[in-house]
Design a protein around this nucleic acid. Structure first.
Lengths: 213, 213
DNA sequence: CTACGATGGGACCAAACGGTCCAGAGTGGA
DNA sequence: TCCACTCTGGACCGTTTGGTCCCATCGTAG
């Protein structure tokens, strides 16, 4: 699953070149929609950025909404794949801290601008496009599930107390992450995101069997 | 400061009727932009919702951007005024919990839809309108300042340990709040917001001088 | 080599958009 | 009462938008 295979539903029609074009369109749209917002991105912007033409846009996507759906699939795929690498091995507070450092460092590169690839789409689309809201919610849940699984491992390994609720902790971490993204985006400074995640990590730490640093 | 006085900068020209019209426009725009998003709200929408005409829009605001600025001022004024009531007396964990219950209950009324009046504007505008970003950031800081002041009182009163950093705690609470808003908005369920704020309150509690319930 | 579907370029369209303008109605101070 | 100025309604405008369509080109299976 290396290229352009994140959300193929249609059975008919496929050709190497066509797939490449489709891929270019979705990737260009994803970048534009992340940096400018969905509504502020026009199909002409996408057409120019992807070096394609109107007919190509409409031979691959029935309308703008369906292109947005593909963008959501792509962004979620990329974010979750990256997250999976760090989180599926998560089994210690140290691991959680490394995850936090990773995500903060990545956001620091652009001084918080643009926010979370999934979160900013969610904020803009949740009350405007029900299909988008539903899939974004699923992606949030998948993401949170990765955290929950890691925290559950930490309980099983005796790192966290057995009365810790991994679901609640994961929700808290996700909220701190998303809130951190938003505050950092607005302030153009990662600091609030760092602080928010520090809080979340501290909260998880408060459930360790033998409270340490 | 009861009506239409949240952001009057212009010195010249003012009449009772004109002010009322201006007020209607900003309020209609604020509601539409909060529920649909800024870019998804057209000036025609605003015109119809406020029962005015094009010339009135442009006699009060030079362009859409300046109308957006007024909407930001109005929303911030309303949110902060409401927050001030709860937060300027904040001096105990119980008070913090009451604040949390208030904000959660209010968001539960619409099942999380539309998100935070300030937060959703911030997410949409931060990377699109620099002036908007700056003022939204200031409003976030004001809001956070109310929390900081309350937490500082709690330190002074001996409720929280003196090594607690009220600024960091306030940032954490704000991030949990905004992240909670976003997750609730996407899930159309206040639960994640409740959980996020529970985490934030628990984190503050962890700094109490005599750890209690 | 040929035929046929996949691909591509871009002219074209109606509607919606932000914004301008002006003529007439309303209003308040002298 | 009158006058100057504000306020209002809405026709109008150029541009941008999402979307359609047609015809040329490509690529490959038979």
């Amino acid at each position: 699953m290396s290229r352009a295979e994140y959300g193929l539903t249609q059975a008919r029609r496929l050709t190497r070149r066509g797939l490449a074009t489709r891929d270019r369109i979705v990737r260009a749209a994803a970048t534009l929609m992340h940096t400018r917002g969905v509504n502020a991105t026009t199909l002409d912007d996408v057409r120019i950025a992807s070096g394609t033409s109107k007919s190509q846009l409409y031979s691959h996507f029935v309308d703008k909404e369906s292109l947005v759906q593909e963008v959501i699939s792509l962004q979620a795929h990329e974010v979750l794949e990256r997250q999976r690498q760090r989180l599926e091995r998560l089994d210690s507070i140290r691991g959680l801290e490394l995850w936090r450092d990773d995500v903060v460092r990545r956001n620091a590169l652009r001084n918080g601008a643009y926010g979370c690839e999934i979160g900013s789409l969610a904020s803009e689309l949740a009350d405007q496009d029900e299909a988008a809201r539903i899939s974004l919610n699923e992606h949030f849940n998948t993401w949170q599930g990765l955290l929950t699984a890691g925290l559950t491992r930490m309980i099983d390994d005796g790192v966290l107390r057995s009365d810790a609720d991994p679901e609640l902790l994961a929700t808290g971490v996700m909220a701190a992450l998303q809130g951190g993204y938003l505050l950092a985006q607005t302030a153009r400074d990662v600091a609030p995101m760092q602080i928010a995640l520090d809080m979340a990590v501290a909260h998880v730490k408060s459930f360790t069997t033998a409270p340490t640093t």
